[in-house]
Write a protein that binds this DNA or RNA. Structure first.
Lengths: 213, 213
DNA sequence: GTCTATACGCAGATAGAC
DNA sequence: GTCTATCTGCGTATAGAC
């Protein structure tokens, strides 16, 4: 017998895990306000009381989901930024790391961004749970400025380059409903497009940064 | 006496307008599920009953807001795509059109994208309210392919180029909470960054597309 | 730990006077 | 058109038996 792909349906898993897995699906797709505790309970094969037994309140459950969804990714990115790679390799590595995390769970980007927009105070909480993030950003900025000074890349501000990398990488997940309709793409065709971003995005960025000969 | 900037507070405006203006603020920031009818009513200087008198239900009110927020922009973009400009000018014009629409109302991008993610069926409704959108997309794709064939730009698929233009243009509005914290930018400094996108984005794209000499 | 039953509040929606 | 008062259902959360 094949294992169910969704942990929420795996009756073997410990109760807390089943709840978290079910909660993820609902919070990612409907947000904090839109999700319903009884639906989460049903998907986890339990009733509402158990949710409150394991996680005191809806907000606590939401916090657990949000943290679980973002933490490993944040830590990877900081590690990457602190690492020894030269700028262009860091860019490529970031794109690949992002796609590896998000392709299996394509709702995460919208979930993260809308949560941070609706509750900006959570950004502070997240940073507090991300050691060395400030050092990572400073190293990024420094290495962009150095590359510019050395003439390796065209002049660009670190904020703008970071924005460009991020925007190009996540747009496919955020604008999915729009892009599939506009270009009339099947789910399979769209999955292929997302996979192509792995090469398309770094190539686009590195071309844009290439200085005149 | 200066006119209040927010139409919701303008006691002179017709009631329906005041409701819509107040509703926009709430739906943009909290979404359909998170917004509260009595809060919208209070901001419009009315009570809940009036909201239901003018707009039968919460969903109807939401639809009106969503349409109002997206329609003029959609129509502009289609007009632009159907127009006579060469590809590179179309890209620049798109960026500027987008920024003109969104800079004064920076919550719109997240509002639009989360709405379409949570209720993908609305994409169909939107398309039905956007005449010639299909022709616009086809013309875009054709002109990208022609430019590639003529060697004016590096080879790239139309979906990818469209994605890149969109991602680079809207990321600043979507990732605002993240970027301001990471790079420690004041609201004024961040506003300046967004304004710089007007030049930064087209320059980045045109560099990326530049074929080898 | 897991359940059933229930408390409690609040949100959306309506009735009906003015 | 605008209001006050009210209905109704539903959603979170708790009590308490097993």
């Amino acid at each position: 017998m094949a294992r169910p792909t969704n942990a929420a349906l795996d009756q073997q898993a410990p109760t807390a895990e089943r709840i978290l897995a079910a909660a993820r699906d609902h919070f990612r797709q409907k947000g904090l306000a839109g999700a319903r505790m009884h639906e989460i309970a049903a998907d986890a094969g339990l009733n509402k009381a158990m949710l409150h037994y394991y996680f005191r309140s809806k907000e606590d459950l939401f916090d657990a989901v949000f943290r679980h969804d973002t933490e490993p990714f944040r830590l990877s990115v900081v590690a990457l930024m602190l690492g020894p790679l030269p700028l262009r390799d860091k860019i490529t590595a970031f794109v690949n790391t992002y796609l590896d995390f998000v392709l299996p769970q394509p709702h995460i980007p919208v979930f993260m961004l809308t949560t941070l927009t609706q509750f900006p105070e959570r950004m502070g909480v997240m940073m507090a749970q991300t050691p060395n993030y400030r050092k990572g950003v400073e190293l990024w900025s420094a290495s962009v400025r150095e590359a510019v000074a050395r003439g390796e890349i065209r002049p660009i501000e670190p904020v703008h380059l970071w924005q460009n990398v991020l925007g190009l990488t996540l747009i496919g997940f955020i604008a999915r409903p729009m892009l599939t309709r506009l270009f009339d793409l099947s789910p399979e065709a769209y999955a292929a497009v997302l996979e192509q971003r792995r090469h398309e995005v770094p190539a686009f960025i590195l071309n844009a940064l290439r200085p005149d000969a």
